[in-house]
């Protein structure tokens, strides 16, 4: 395997207590690296071999000096787009199972947590993170229902009024016609919580 080279262009990092957060401004992904993955990324300068990096991990974190640990880190960093060059073909997946390595080294619990681990998330656009209610959605219908019922909490007479019943009827119909499956929205959960009959 070639000496790994970390990608640093367009990436900024922030250190947490035992982790490193990397934000990739090019691909808009955020990554959390545990200590060993972070150590490999920091030292992957193209000059250190996989063997040298495994010795570094052993020296700094007490992880058994085995190249497979570095290969596991390289695989995860490469798949996350955090290396300059990465060829998945170079990595034999059978050799770099995290679970298998933990078993081989007799690591369990917190010790197993020392093996390289990278978690990634896509940074959303404002629209992705936003709360769109432009169509009839469960969220909107839910708000309608909640509004009606909250009003009913305060004024039972209103709950039985024509206005409330029309609102409630429209909201219920919106649920029934919604394009969103109930298993994704917990609609019946809120209906139960509000003391209304299920849809």
């Amino acid at each position: 395997m070639k000496n790994p080279v970390a990608r640093r262009n367009g990436i900024f990092s922030e250190n947490l207590e035992k982790e490193k957060i990397l934000y990739d401004k090019v691909n808009h992904r955020a990554h959390s690296l545990n200590e060993s993955a972070a150590l490999v990324w920091q030292n992957a300068d193209g000059n250190k071999s996989v063997g040298e990096l495994s010795e570094l991990l052993n020296r700094e974190l007490g992880i058994p000096a085995d190249e497979k640990v570095v290969v596991l880190a390289v695989k995860q960093l490469g798949e996350a787009g955090l290396l300059e060059e990465f060829s998945p073909a170079e990595v034999n997946p059978e050799l770099v199972s995290r679970r298998q390595l933990a078993r081989n080294f007799g690591l369990a619990g917190a010790s197993a947590g020392l093996l390289p681990f990278v978690v990634s998330v896509l940074a959303p656009t404002p629209a992705m993170a936003g709360s769109a209610v432009s169509k009839i959605t469960p969220g909107k219908a839910l708000h309608d229902l909640t509004t009606v019922t909250v009003e009913a909490d305060l004024d039972p007479a209103f709950y039985h009024s024509r206005t409330a019943q029309v609102d409630l009827g429209q909201a219920t119909q919106a649920f029934a016609k919604g394009q969103y499956p109930t298993e994704e929205t917990d609609l019946n959960g809120v209906i139960n919580a509000l003391g209304l009959p299920p849809l």
Partner: peptide, 26 residues
């Protein structure tokens, strides 16, 4: 969740993270 995973959970739902990533993370 570790501190890093917790931060990622929030980042994945942050409205302006793409425009002001440094400020958001800090």
């Amino acid at each position: 969740l570790t501190a890093g995973q917790m931060l990622l959970t929030l980042l994945g739902n942050t409205v302006a993270v793409r425009r002001q990533s440094e400020l958001t993370v800090s």
